[in-house]
Design a protein around this nucleic acid. Structure first.
Length: 134
RNA sequence: CCAGACGGCCGGAUGGCCGCCUUCCGUGCGCGACAGCGUGGCGGGGGGAGGAAAGUCCGGGCUCCACGGAAACACGGUGCCGGGUAACGCCCGGCGGGGGCGACCCCAGGGAAAGUGCCACAGAAAGCAAACCGCCCUGCUUCGCUCUCACGAGCUUCGCGGGGUAAGGGUGAAAGGGUGCGGUAAGAGCGCACCGCGCCCCCGGCGACGGGGGCGGCACGGUAAACCCCACCGGGAGCAAAACCGAAUAGGGACGACGGGCCGGCUUGUCCGGCAGGCGCGUUUCCGCGCUGUCGUCCGGGUUGGUUGCGCGAGGCGUCCGGCAACGGGCGUCCCAGAUGAAUGGCCAUCUCCUCUGCCGCUCCGGCGGCGGAGGAACAGAACCCGGCUUACAGGCCGUCUGGCACU
C-alpha cells in the first residue's frame, strides 16, 4: 500500500525534524527524516508521509528558488509515494546543485537518501527512541 | 542600400506523459432538529505571473488612530507657461537657453536692486574699486649724439620722484560690457554705429514670452544642489492595517469556601488600614522596590491557528465623436490569478535563434553554402489594489522621419 503524502507547513515541525532528525547529503539535495510524534498521527493518518521543502537564499533569487522547489517536488511525487516508509516526517532541502543536476540523477539522489536513512532503523517503524546510541 | 533619430509591440512555438491552486456543475460519503452543514472522496468544464510582478522613490484608494473651525508659526516637499488627471515630483503641448548638417536631443529653468555668507589655488587686485609689468606726460640726475661761435635747443641711455591711463601682457571658472571707426600725450562710452544690458511705451499671445520704437553711456560679477525670500501643497501609521471566531499555559479582575502573627479604626464585619513574617530583585548590613496561601466558578483581554479584508476595477477589448496631443465622452462586449512553508509547474521530443567546432564544396582569401556534433535560451516570480517614476533585459518585429550613395 502506498501511504498518503501530506505537506509539512508549520515552522515548529521543520525545527523539530532539523533538530533531532537524521540527515543525508547528496549532490542534488539534502534529506532529513524523523518519526512523527505520537500525538500528531491519529488513526486515519497513521501511515501517512508528511514532507516539507526548504530552499534558502543561498540557492539564488526568487525565480531560482521556485524552480528548485518545483523540481524537488516533482522528484518527490515519483519516489516518495511508493518507496518511503510511512509514519515519518521528511524535509527536503534544496542546494545549489539542484538546478544544474539532471532530473534522473536528482531522482536517484532522493532514492539513495531514502535507502540510506531507512537503513538506520530497518525494522522498527514505530519506535526510533529505542535505538542503541551510536 | 548604408548610417542615424523617434514612437509602438513581442518577450520562444507546437505536441505527448504526469501534477498543483482556484471556481462552477454533477455525484458519492458522514452528521443531522430533514432547514441544511461538513468533506484533503470521484468525474467533467472554465481560469491561472510581468513588462518590468523588481527597487519601494512619489501620488491615490482602503483601514485604524488623532482632531470643533479657521489662521499663524515650525517642519518637509514642489518651483518657466498653459492644459490633462482622483492625484502627483507624472504625462501632453508650448516658451526660453544649450547641442547637432538634420530628423531630433538635453536643462534643479521662481527671486541675487530684502538681508547675511562664500568665491579655494593662482593673481597686483575677487566686489570696491584699485594698479604688478606696461604705455604716456613731467621734474631732477646721468651716458652719449646732432645743430650752434656761444648761451642754449632737440633726440637718446641708466636711475629717482610727481601725475595720467586701463588699450596690451599675465592669473583665474569669473577682472567693472563686446566689435569697429573716430579721438588722444597715452588712453578710456570720451564720441559714434551695430550687438548686448536696463527702463518706458506700443503691438501680438490666455500665458511663459516674442516683435517694434524711444530713452539711458552702462550703473547692477557669480553662487539660492549656502542660509534665505516668495508662491503653492502636506495630520500620523500602514493589509504584519483592520474586523470576527477562538484553544493550552502564565498572568489580571470578581465571587465563594477553607486558612491567616501583631497593632489601630469604627458602620463590630472573621470589614478596612498599617506593621511583622515569607519569597524574589538590586552587591552584603542599613535601606528601597515588587508579590502575598489553597481550591472552585465566571468575566475581560489575548498569542499560535482559522475566517473575513481579497478583487466589478480611476477595469480590459472593439468602435464612433471631440481634441495638435496627453486625455475626455458615447455605444457595444468581456469577467480576466487570488497563493499564504506561498499554486500558476516537472520531464521528454521536434522546430526557431545564438556561440564554439568537425568534414566537404565554392572563393574576389574578407568569407559564403551544405551535412553533422557540443553548449546555451535575457532580466526576472503576483503577496491589499491602482496611477506614475527609476533600474535590469538575450533576441526580434512594425511604423514615421533625417542625412548620404546608387539607379530610373
Amino acid at each position: 500500500m502506498s501511504p498518503a503524502v501530506l505537506r509539512l507547513k508549520r515552522r515548529p515541525d521543520f525545527l523539530r525534524v532539523a533538530a533531532s532528525g537524521r540527515r543525508w547529503v547528496t549532490p542534488g539535495l539534502i534529506l532529513q527524516a524523523r518519526r512523527q510524534p505520537t500525538g500528531v498521527a491519529n488513526d486515519a493518518a497513521a501511515s501517512a508521509v508528511r514532507i516539507g521543502f526548504t530552499v534558502s537564499r543561498k540557492v539564488g533569487n526568487a525565480v531560482a528558488r521556485n524552480r528548485a522547489r518545483r523540481r524537488l517536488r516533482a522528484a518527490v511525487e515519483r519516489v516518495v509515494g511508493v518507496h518511503a516508509r510511512g509514519g515519518q516526517d521528511y524535509v527536503v532541502i534544496g542546494r545549489a546543485g539542484t538546478l544544474r543536476r539532471p532530473f534522473c540523477a536528482l531522482v536517484a539522489d532522493l532514492e539513495a537518501a531514502l535507502r540510506r536513512l531507512d537503513s538506520y532503523c530497518p525494522d522498527r517503524p514505530d519506535d526510533d527512541t529505542a535505538r542503541p546510541p551510536a
